[in-house]
Structures are given as C-alpha cells and as structure tokens.
Design a protein around this nucleic acid. Sequence first.
RNA 1: GGUCAUAUAGCUCAGCGGUAGAGCACUACGUUGACAUCGUAGGGGUCACAGGUUCGAUCCCUGUUAUGACCACCA
Length: 768
Amino acid sequence: MLEKVYDPKKFEKEVYEATNDEFYPGVVKSGAAAFSVLMPPPNVTGSLHVGHALTYTIQDILIRYHRCRGFDTLWQPGTDHAGIATQLVVSRELEASGVDVAALEADELISKIWGWKEKSGEQIVRQQMAMGCSAPWSLSRFTMDEHFSKAVIEVFVRLYKDGLIFREKRLVNWDTKLRTAISDLEIQNKEEKGTLWHIKYELENSDGYITIATTRPETMFGDTAVAVHPLDQRYVPMVGKRVRIPYTDRTVPIICDEYIDMEKGTGCLKVTPAHDVNDFAIGKRHSLEMITVIGMDGHMKTSVDVPEFLRGLYLKKARKILLEKLEEDGLLATKEEVLHTIPYGDRSGTVIEPLLTDQWFVDSKTLAGAAINVVEDGSVCFYPKKWENTYFNWMRNIEPWCISRQIVWGHRIPAWYGPSGEIFVERTEEEAVEAAMRHGIGKEQLRRETDVLDTWFSSALWPFVTLGWPNETEALRRHYPTSVLVTGFDIIFFWIARMLMMSLYFMKKIPFKDIYIHALVRDTSGQKMSKSKGNIVDPLALMEEFGADALRFTLAFLSVPGRDIKLGVEHVKISRNFITKIWNAARFLQTKGIEFVDAGIQSIGVKRKLNHWIIAKLNWFKREIAQDFVDYRFDYATRNIQFFVRDTFCDFFIEAIKFQDDDETRAVAASVFANILVVAHPFMPFVTDHLADVLGISKTLSVGLDGYECDIETSSEYEQEVDSFVELIHKIRSERQEHGAESAEYLELRTKLCGWPGELRGIAGIVR
RNA sequence: GGUCAUAUAGCUCAGCGGUAGAGCACUACGUUGACAUCGUAGGGGUCACAGGUUCGAUCCCUGUUAUGACCACCA
C-alpha cells in the first residue's frame, strides 16, 4: 500500500540503487539506434550548484526519454582537471594549513593536487546521483587520466607537425598574480573611471615640447615613438623630429600612423609596443624597438631602461611617484577624468598586463573554417538559433589561441629545447632525444618545456577522446557523432567552438548534431548568483526539502528558451505539490482496487464514451510531448504534463470514474496512469519508478514499459461529445456559483445533463 | 562603439495577424469515496511608448525608452 504522504526521502536513494545498472549503453535490444550526450565535465574543484542542476536535469531528461523509447543511450560522464582553478583552490587550502606553496617543488605541488582530486572528485558525482542523473558512472573519464593525457600529446604533436601550433614571442595577457599567460577569453573587462594625464615630452635640439596623453604614465619608459595622424596639421611639421623620454637619455622619433585618432587625448600617442596591443601593431608596422619595462611580477623592471627612482616598484606605486615627480618638474600639462576599460583576470581578479613573452599558440583561424561551415550548412544546429550569430561573430574574427600556461597542474607541453633554442616536439622523451641527436644535440643538453596546456585544450577533445580516440573503438563507431550537446552560452567560445574545431580536424566529422543552449539561473530578483552576494540557491538544500524530482521538474518548467531562469523556493514547492497530486491519484487508483496487469486494453475492448475520450486525450498528449522533445521545449512538456494530469485525468476522468465500476474502465484507468508515469518519468524519475513499483506496474521505468499501450483507434464523435459535456459541467458550476441553484438558467442546464450517460452524470458535487 | 535578447495580470512566465492565458498571490464557497501539499467559482491586463503595413496588430515593420547579455575598444 502507498503511504499517505509523498515523502521523497523515503525512496529516492533506494530507487536509484535499484536502477543504476540500466544506465549503461547496450542494455536495449540489439539493432536499436544510438542516442548519446556528452556530459560537460564539471571541474574537480566543484560542488553541485544550481547551474549544474539545470544542465544535468535537461541532459538526464533527454537521456531518459530516449532510453525509455528504446534507444541505446550513452551519457558520457567525466570530470575536468580545470588547470588554473584547481591549482588555485588547492594552493589556497595548503596555505591555509600553513604550507608555503611557493617553496614547493612543482612535483610536490602536483602530487598534492592529485591527492586533493582523489578526495574531492567523487563529491560531485554523489550529488549528481542524488539528482537522479542516469549516467554510466564507471565509464567516467578524467581529462588527466592516462589515456586522455596520451591523446592530448598525440593531438599536440600532430597539430605542431601540421603547422597549426607554433611558438612565438607575442604580446599576451599576463596575469601578474598567478604569473601565467591566459587567453583572451579568460579576461573580464570592467569599465572604470580613470585619469588621462597629459605629459610633455621635450623636443630634441629645441625648446619646444609635444604633449602626449596617457592613462598609463609608468609605461613611458617603454616608449619607442610618439605617433600622430598624417593629416593632423598641428603636428605634421614635427614628424621626423625626436623627443626625449623624461628621466632618460633616450630619444624617440615622432612618426605618423593612420591609426591615430586626432580627436582623442592630445592627438599624440606615446607608442609602447611591449605593453599595449595597439602599440604593438604600430610598432610592427614601423619596425620599432620593443622595450619591456614591466616585469612578470607586476613591478617595474630593475633594468637600465627604468629610471633608478622607480626600479622594482609595484606599478601603482611607481605611477604615483612618477606623477609627483612630473608635476614637480612641470612636465604634467593637465589631467582629465575618463571612463576606460581595464582587463582583469577572471580567476585571479587582478589587472592583466599585456606582456611580451614566448608562448605556444594554436592557429585558430585555420581550424575555424570547417567549424564555421558545418553551422552554416546546418549540419550542426543551435537551439535557440540566435546563438549561431554569436558563434559566427566570434569565429570569423578569431585570433590565435594562447595555449601555454606557466602553472604546474595540467598537461605538460611535449616540447624539448636545444641549447640554441632548437625546438623538438615529440610524443615521448626518447623520440625527442632521437630527433635532437640527428641535429647533433645530446640528451644532456635537452631541456623539457615546463609550461602546461590551457585546460580547454584538453576539454576540446572531449567528444572523441572520451570514446577512445586515437584507438578505433566500438564506442566511437556507435556513439560518435553524439546526438546533442547541452550547455550554457557562457562556454560557446571556450568549449563548443573549440570542440567543433578539434573534432572536425581529427575526426573529419561533426562531434554533435544539435547544440541546446540553456539559460543562466538567477535568483528571484534576477541577480546573477554569487557567493559574495549571498544569493546562492543551493540545489542540495532544495532537494533535501522538496525532493530531487520537484527540483528537476521546476528547472525543466522554467527552461524557456531565450530567457534567464529566476529560481525561487516557491517554484519548487509548487512542483512538489504537483507531484503530490500524482501521488494521490495513484492512491485513489489503489483504494479503488484497480489492478495493474499488463494485459493492456486491446484485449478488453473499449466501448464507453468516457474511455474513448480519455484515451484520445492521452494519445494527443503523448504526441505533444514527442513534439516538445523534437523542439527541445521542456517548458512545454512540463506544462503539458501538468495540464493532462491535473485538468484531464484528475479533475475529470477520476471524478467521473468514482461512480463507475466495470472492468473496461478499470483497465483504461490503469493503462492511462501507467502511460502518465512513463511520460513523466524523465522529468521525475524517482517518484514514477517508486509508484510503478508499488502499484505493480513495473520494477523500473528506465527502459520503458510494455503492455500498457493505448494506441487504439478512438471515436472522435465520442470525444467531441464528452468535450461538450465537460463544457456543460463548467457552465453549470459557474451558473450555480453566480446565481444559485434555484436560477432558471441553472435548472435548464441541469435538465440538459440528465440526458448524459451515468458515468458522466456521476461527477461528484454536481449531480446527486 | 557593434551585436543580440527581453518588455503581457500584483509576482513568475506562456501565447497568438481576428473574444488575452497558466501558476502563485487575492476574493467567495467547499472537507462529496485520492489529494487542504486540495477542489469549485470569481476579480484582475491600453500586452513598454510612438509611428507604419493591414479590413483588422499584443503579434509583422521602423523608431524611441528601459533592462540585460555578449563582442570590440579609446591614448
């Protein structure tokens, strides 16, 4: 017997344990079509947050839906080593416990991180299980496990030998706190108020001066020119002359360049090629010298280029002292307040310095071509489609991808350097030694690259490496390309674009057919959730209070394309109430003594109007749901489930059959309810499995249900008749409420009702 | 600066070229053989604003405003 109260805590765990061996590929009949989804690997640092809850809910709904319908499903799970993020988290933990991380050898730190990973890696999986994620966990991959690491090296070496990876001295985004380069995507630009200082540079061999404007005076010692616009009448006469950089003996030429905006600042730009992206470009055009005056640590360098009074100072301090001195010496013409954007590192939160360093790059431009084509020609589709714009926009203006990181946690770049800068990129050290020997370089002269790869370099390989590449595996044959990728728009560039590029290059086939982009989850007032704001909605707490099914149903319900999700406790409560409704409907069927026998209704035959009607409605409902899945409209699907269960099944059918007792109606009630459980199962797996089990319908709904088919032909005449009866009932109820049971209108309607068959007239509360 | 969204009931959101929809909240009634974590009925909207297309616009087009996101960037 079902318990009176729906209490998910009492059965969720048990249900999961009873079903989890059905989550593996190959549990279906042979010959089934494959349906596969890549689980975006959560960071090993991770604990489940509500964004995860959303993405995994949607993926699990898709997987369960297809598994129920007989597809051979694979939901490929795994975790990501998340280079910088993880190293940062572990370093902080170590420091908190008194370890001097800076003093650790790289190897020691790496082994500490591994230890930490082993410890915390399982936590997120346990939480995913609690949510009901039906993934084959023993097939889980980690981006740094042995197989994955080999594949990463294979990819790196091939791309290098194909000329698509190169090493170059370029201006990169340097994080002075983490002391590593980062990619353009790892930068957060923030608009801030700043000051534009006008500084006088004296002309050489003349009394005059030229005034430049800058927000970064401390970089002036790296200036190697002053540039003006070629048509700027104010300055053209000065072009070719030289000016002296204050506090140095250095003079630099005044040059002209079309890039200069005559309206901005003073119209004169100090050109600092080593510390500014645009200046770097100007420098290249004019073959200017590049002088680095800022060190990797975010302090002024101690080199001769920097005046003695500033050497080694922290940038902000150097700026302050320099400005004081300029003012004192009358070189500060004026200053104005401006709004400008400052780049910050997304992990460290520190100001990013463009610095000239040797780094490894992927030639994204070349790889992007194919990845643009497959979206253009519709081989790969975004849902909602508008994200294709975003994708094209970025892909068509793509810049080389800086993939080297000066940290320890990650895939070490398989490169070895000879004594004069020779580079050997090979799969193993032995091969590198051999290659070096051919150039007359001995093993002892070789030095291995210490940089590691950007985390996203390995994530980009997720679609094919998880399935066994570079080996030719059954998994690859069966499940590549995958069916759909589900993820948030925030990683379209980081991950989706790069998976497409890498997959197309190495597999020559798309990695996934559809890309479903879901919304961001915000708090009830529409604010982005963050720890510092304290507005985090904890999915674990919600599951604890209302059950995993309620949370899943809510997230699906709120997944309206193109709109962010505002999640509040209230919503989850409503879903829990709806699940209770299903629970109670089951209890009614049970108290009514309805038996669930998988005889189906075909053998009994359906004659009654009401039964034709409910079956017609059920089949309509199932078709709607099928379409909702084609369209990835989980919001529609949940609305349809609510509508059918509440308005059609409970409020009308159940009410009607309270006064009806015959084998046909009982069999129909059983079959329709069994169908409801199957349709609702992807959205609320725990309660549906539990109900199916207790009612004796099935031990588990994971792989679908036989014996309760309702695909019989129904009479549309009967359906319409009952529809009009439903309408009549509403009129009667309304009339009675509005004008009382004595009104002429009411009595007339009531008389009409008498013409209807008994099981319909019997609806409680209307007709005695 | 560029691009893309969004704007509908008090709240959260669906929707549609032709009478405006749901849930929550609200009001009234109700414990009749599952369900008060409920049922029945009801009130409540110039569909952001201004133009245009149309027989007809909340819907399509243009513009404006507000909000949000992303990309680029200014010395």
